[in-house]
């Protein structure tokens, strides 16, 4: 079929017009073939919103901004086209917000719970939500002050801590350590002093063993029980030793940390009561050791070999 010039022109223009209208509505997100729902909301301001900005419900795009107008009260009335079959309850809130730092602004509708629904053209409540960036931008100065205050205070604290550690506390710590080492020295002395008694105990023990030899046959079960007790005692001694050892290493660690001014201990070090406690503890320890010296039997009840007899 041969088309006349008029027909060709007509086809071209008509197609272009149709494509333009469809394309325009498509780009503006207006449904191409049916009338859509329209609602409006009023916000304090409308930064970042322009006609064509998107409208979301529960993260689903449902429409776009149609028109933006300033109201006489210098607020901003935004009309938006909503294209969804889901009705919007009365009492829903339109929140003008940003979905991310780099994304543009959009409007998010938070659905209300009413069983009545918004009609065409009705207005819902609008809230302008400031974004992180805006808050930072607007309150930057304020925040900056806060931050520098905080840093200043932190600095002060650290300086105080340092001072405390440098002078008094370091002295107290040294004293504590001295006390601890003298305590240990005394423990060693005690052990040395008791050497003879222990020797005699072992001697009488060996004497007993020879006597025991004779007793073995008739008093075997007793001897066996005795042996068990001895073994138990030795094991317990071993345990005590290990505990002492780990306690000493723990203590070492703690002391190291204190030396470095680390952790809560650093704070505790500040506390004079701690020193007093430690001091009194040392005194009591001294007393205790003195007591052991004077009356070992009372403290070495577990080593009651004598009690067996």
């Amino acid at each position: 079929m041969k088309l006349s010039n008029e027909v060709k022109v007509g086809i071209t223009v008509l197609l272009a017009v149709v494509v333009a209208i469809v394309g325009f509505r498509f780009m503006r997100d207006i449904p191409i073939f049916r009338q859509s729902m329209e609602i409006s909301a009023t916000f304090d301001r409308a930064d970042g919103i322009s006609s064509g900005s998107l409208v979301y419900i529960q993260g689903v795009r449902v429409g776009s901004v149609n028109r933006i107008a300033l109201t006489p009260e210098t607020r901003v009335n935004i009309r938006m086209r909503i294209d969804t079959d889901v009705p919007i309850p009365r009492g829903s809130i339109a929140r003008l917000t940003s979905l991310g730092i780099v994304e543009g602004k959009s409007i998010v509708i938070e659905l209300g719970t009413s069983d009545q629904f918004v009609e065409f053209g009705e207005e819902i409540e609008g809230i302008y939500a400031e974004t992180m960036m805006e808050v930072l931008g607007q309150r930057g100065e304020e925040l900056g002050d806060d931050v520098s205050n905080a840093i200043y205070e932190l600095n002060m604290f650290l300086r105080q801590l340092n001072e405390t550690l440098n002078d008094d506390a370091r002295m107290t710590l040294n004293e504590t350590l001295n006390n601890v080492s003298s305590t240990t020295g005394k423990v060693a002395e005690i052990l040395e002093g008791k050497q003879q008694e222990i020797d005699t105990a072992i001697e009488s023990g060996s004497r007993m063993l020879s006597q025991l030899d004779t007793l073995i046959t008739d008093s075997r079960p007793q001897v066996e029980a005795l042996m068990e007790t001895i073994e138990k005692n030795i094991a317990e001694l071993e345990g005590v030793r290990i505990e002492l050892e780990s306690a000493a290493s723990n203590f070492n660690e703690i002391l190291e940390k204190i030396n470095r001014g680390e952790g809560t201990i650093g704070l505790l070090v500040n506390d004079p009561s701690m020193y007093e406690n430690l001091d009194s503890l040392t005194i009591e320890l001294n007393n205790l050791i003195k007591g052991i010296n004077e009356n070992p039997g009372r403290y070495l009840r577990h080593m009651s070999i004598i009690d067996i007899f």
Binding site: F24, M27, S51, G52, S53, G104
Partner: peptide
């Protein structure tokens, strides 16, 4: 993206 930055004035 095309829709978000679609301004009728540009057309």
């Amino acid at each position: 993206g095309a829709r978000m930055f679609f301004y009728p004035w540009n057309v």
